[in-house]
Design a binder for these strands. Structure first.
Lengths: 138, 138
DNA sequence: GCGGCGACGTTATGCTATAACGTATTCAAG
DNA sequence: CTTGAATACGTTATAGCATAACGTCGCCGC
C-alpha cells in the first residue's frame, strides 16, 4: 500500500473529513487549521471540527497534543494503541513521533499505587529537535 | 515555619505578587484567575501576569500545566528541582502532586539517544483522582 | 551623559474552546 | 405506524487563553 489511510467504515462525513485532514498533514493541526482546510468541503464552524475531533480522540484514531493545542492522527491507523503513549515533537519541522514504553508505564503505575492515586489519563510530551533536523542544521 | 513562602529576594513586584497568588492557591490558577486576584494590587492587563509567569517558570519557581492551561507554584520553594517532573492532577479537588522519577527520566533519555532526538523540555501530566477524594467518595 | 537593557503599562488583537439553541436522522419498542 | 431516545448536525454567540506592538521608565556600566 503506497498510502495507507484506511479508516473505519462507520465514521460520519465530518469525522472522515477531519481524520483525512490529519492523515495528510505532515505535522499537528489545530482545530482552526483543520477548519480552514475543510471550508471547501462546506464546513464552517469550529464546533463541527471539535465535535469530530472529540469522537476521533475518544476512539483512539487521533490524539490531542496538550502542549500545542493541536491534534495528530494516530500513528497506527489500525489498532488503538493501548496504555500510555509518549509524543516527541520536533520544534523545527513539527513532526511528531509516537512511542510507548512499558517501563515508564510500570513506574507511573507504581507511583499511583503507592500514593493511592487513580489514574485516568496520562499525557507525556517531549519537545526538542528530531535527528533529521539536527543533521540538517549541522 | 508555619507557612513557608520564602521567595527569592530579587523578584520584581509583579513577579512577587503572582508567585504569592500561586503560593496561596490550593489548586492551579489560570493567568486570568491570577489577574482577578491581583486587581486590588493595581494589576490590570493579562500581559502583566504572563510576563511575570514567564520569568517564574523560567526560574523554576512555578510550573505550567499544559493540560489545564494553568500554573502552580513549584512544590519545593527552595531548590529548583532538576530534570523531569511529573504532575498528578486530581480532577475532583484540583490539587497537584509533583514528583520525579529517575527511572522514567533514564528511559526517556535512552529513547532519545536511540532515535537521535535532542530533548529540550518534557511535560508529563497524570489526570485522575487523588487518594483523599477517592476516600471521600467511598 | 548616554546607550543598552530589562521591566513596565496600555491598547488592540488573535487563537482556542464551548454554551445554547434548534433541526435531521436513525432505530427500536410499543 | 408512530413515538421517543439517541446521536449527529448546523448556526450564532460568547467565553477563555495568549501575544503583538507600541511607548515609557529606571538602572547600571562606560
Amino acid at each position: 500500500m503506497a498510502h495507507d489511510h484506511g479508516m473505519p467504515a462507520d465514521l460520519t462525513r465530518n469525522q472522515e473529513l477531519v481524520l483525512g485532514a490529519l492523515n495528510h498533514a505532515p505535522a499537528p493541526l489545530s482545530a482552526y487549521d483543520i477548519l480552514d482546510k475543510l471550508r471547501s468541503e462546506g464546513l464552517r464552524a469550529p464546533l463541527q471540527i471539535y465535535r469530530a475531533l472529540d469522537k476521533l480522540v475518544e476512539r483512539g484514531l487521533a490524539h490531542r497534543l496538550e502542549s500545542l493545542n493541536a491534534f495528530v492522527a494516530c500513528a497506527d491507523a489500525h489498532c488503538h494503541r493501548k496504555g500510555l503513549i509518549a509524543f516527541a515533537i520536533c520544534e523545527a519541522c513539527g513532526k511528531v513521533d509516537e512511542f510507548a514504553d512499558e517501563v515508564i508505564e510500570e513506574r507511573l503505575g507504581a507511583w499511583a499505587k503507592d500514593t493511592g492515586f487513580k489514574t485516568e489519563r496520562t499525557t507525556m510530551e517531549i519537545r526538542g529537535k528530531c535527528a533529521a533536523c539536527l543533521k540538517a542544521a549541522a
